[in-house]
Nucleic acid binder design. Sequence first.
DNA 1: CGCCCTTTCTGGAACAAATCAAGTCTTTGT
DNA 2: ACAAAGACTTGATTTGTTCCAGAAAGGGCG
Lengths: 143, 143
Amino acid sequence: MTGTDVEVQLREAGLRVTRQRVAVLSVLHDHPHTDTDTVIRRVREVAGDVSHQAVYDVLRALTDTGLVRRIQPTGSVARYEVRVGDNHHHVVCRSCGAIGDVDCAVGHAPCLTASDPHGFVIDEAEVTYWGICPACAAEAAAS
Amino acid sequence: MTGTDVEVQLREAGLRVTRQRVAVLSVLHDHPHTDTDTVIRRVREVAGDVSHQAVYDVLRALTDTGLVRRIQPTGSVARYEVRVGDNHHHVVCRSCGAIGDVDCAVGHAPCLTASDPHGFVIDEAEVTYWGICPACAAEAAAS
DNA sequence: CGCCCTTTCTGGAACAAATCAAGTCTTTGT
DNA sequence: ACAAAGACTTGATTTGTTCCAGAAAGGGCG
């Protein structure tokens, strides 16, 4: 994704194009599942001085317009990824917190329709798989 | 669940039986999906003075031994519920954050097996449904 | 091209949730 | 009942996030 693509994306979402926003979006494109602190550091690497507040504001603006998705597994800080059309899910390592993408096996799966939602109007089903990542499994086996 | 039941539960988990732990467990039995702050208030109602640190410690101990489950939907503070055998999931209101239980429709559902887990060893699939609760839906319709 | 209005960014402070640390008290096995 | 291990209390600290007021930058219009 080029810088121009990012600009188009911003304009189509009705957002102004600023150095900070372009930087945040491209950082998230290159590094999915990044926590806020890392976003700040990476943004500063590519765009020079940017206040942490600006990054928080941008992340909020992008989340509100649906350009990025915010995820926050239990015990983890907020993480962000660019929202892509597919309905993919995440696998989280219980040991180190690493996150991986998992494609939704069967599109709109039947079991993702709640059996008795107590009157809730449901618009999304989010799946989080918990387990051990290869690296942590190897480390555990070695010790 | 009586106080004695809770004591037995604690002993079987290899934990000492203290006033604070009994209080936390019974509070969670009576009020599922409670956030830490509310747990503290309720515990003090039934057990008198208890430091917030004690509650944090107890919740951590109970979580580590598997007696309670910690859940934390994106944008919410940590919430706790007593771990019951069934593999139920949660529905969260986007508007007010209310949480409801949803039974897992089909036990160990096939679509909860990740298609390509990238080498992760998965031991649990957690489903969070997002939507609008009846109360918030009514309020939105009224305005 | 340059002005003005609106939106956004900066810098600093404030806040809430959660954790850390040292010392005291309590539970429990003998 | 006694000692040792574990749990709790008090108080401070860290961490992640948000609030606020003023300065700066985008982008439509003359």
